[in-house]
Amino acid sequence: MPVYHRDDAKAWAHANMHGVANILQPSFSNDLKLLNEAAIRHDVRMCKKLGFWGTLAVSECGTTSEEYIRFVEIACDEAGPDFHIIYHASFDTVEETARVGKACADAGATTMLLSYPPTWYPNSEEELYEYNVKMMDQTGLATVLFAVHLWNFGRIHPAEMSPRLIARLADHPLAVAYKCEGGGNTNAPHLQTLQMCGDKLLVSDPRDGNAPGHVAWFGMQWMGTSCFQYFGGNIPKYFKLMHEGKWDEAMEIFWKIHTARTTRTAVTQTYMPGAHFIHRQAWKYMEWLNGFNGGRLRLPTMRLTDATCKRLSDALIKCGIIDEVPGTMNDFYNGRFPM
């Protein structure tokens, strides 16, 4: 069960959500029939080793609902009390999302990142409001609200979820943070949300290239969630230095990894605008380069090409994040803990 009471969730978040949250993807046996517990535990340990605050247990990698619950149970058990597992509220129906969320709360997840069933088609802000409130009420987890272009909610408001809607949701006792990624290349959603309800929500931008301004101008204390482990431990390291006022050291790291940052963005642009789907297998490769298990994911997943892998690995080598690619593509697909 959560470590806070419903009415104390905001205070808990302000006191405890300091740092960077990355993502944790499930690993499977090589025949894709079973979860690979040893690999999952290894990846949780890697997240902790690299200095992350916590991690999002990704639910969009082909697990069944029951497998996902077991995945979260394993992750929470390995995490211990000082590392946070975030429930990824992304399932086919409202009812299933709520059921799994309750089970993940029981397993030890402390936080929920809200998502939406891909076939759900709301037509108004009121429908969005009711969905978010229902999910928070039914799971009882401190919640990170989330706006991004993937939702197709731009037809309701250009920011995907309007600042007015976020301000209404911010009054809910379990709404503690906002992953603000809608509205395209503008900081208007961040500014307006901060003006309207910045005292009630931890406003976060997961695009780490914006971190210096957000930390300096409004003290962004928590940043998540994304495949930040592609950069090794550099992002939590520079984020911490920024908050300590050590800007020269922080910006040295920030610029050191910039080639990898721009490469990752360029690779993302080859699939995200049309597919409206994250290339999770590419994210598996990104983290494998930095010591994570790697391994195969189930359908639906995108195909990973040699050209994409070379771009991603060359960027890390150029930045000095890794010295060399840690093996062959077969090594990557088999994972560090083959089963």
Rank of each mutant, 00 (worst) to 15 (best):
V215P: 00
H243I: 06
V148S: 13
V176C: 10
H172S: 04
I278C: 07
R164Q: 12
N210P: 01
M223H: 07
N210H: 08
F228M: 08
G198M: 11
L201T: 02
G184R: 08
N187G: 04
K200G: 00
H258F: 15
L194T: 09
M220V: 08
W217G: 10
R155A: 12
P173W: 01
H243W: 07
L174E: 00
L202P: 01
F153M: 05
M251L: 15
G182L: 05
E252H: 06
G224C: 13
I235T: 06
F239D: 00
G245P: 01
F218Y: 15
C180Q: 09
H243P: 00
F153H: 10
G209A: 10
C197T: 08
T143M: 00
I257V: 15
V176D: 03
P163E: 10
H243Y: 09
G233Y: 13
F153E: 02
H214T: 09
P212N: 13
S226Q: 10
S204H: 09
A275I: 05
T263D: 03
K200L: 09
F254R: 02
M272H: 12
S204D: 05
M223R: 08
I278G: 04
L194P: 03
P189A: 11
H258A: 14
R155W: 09
Y238H: 02
L150D: 05
N187E: 14
G183M: 11
K237Q: 15
T143Y: 04
W247C: 00
M196D: 15
N152F: 13
L201I: 03
T186V: 13
Q192D: 13
Y178I: 05
M251K: 00
T143R: 00
Q195K: 06
C180E: 11
T268A: 14
P212S: 14
E252Y: 05
I278P: 00
A142R: 01
A167M: 10
K240V: 05
T268C: 13
H149P: 03
L194G: 09
A216W: 02
N210R: 10
A142V: 03
P206D: 12
T225E: 12
D205M: 02
T143L: 01
G209R: 01
Q221P: 11
Q229D: 11
G182R: 05
L194R: 13
L241N: 02
K200T: 04
V144C: 09
R168A: 07
I257W: 08
T268G: 14
A167Y: 12
V203A: 01
P158Q: 14
E252T: 12
E249R: 03
A147V: 01
D171P: 02
G213W: 11
L150K: 03
A170V: 02
T270K: 04
W217T: 13
L165T: 08
K246W: 14
H276C: 08
L169K: 12
G274Q: 11
N234M: 13
R155C: 06
A266C: 06
G245H: 10
A250S: 14
T259W: 12
Q221Y: 07
Q195C: 08
P212H: 07
P163V: 10
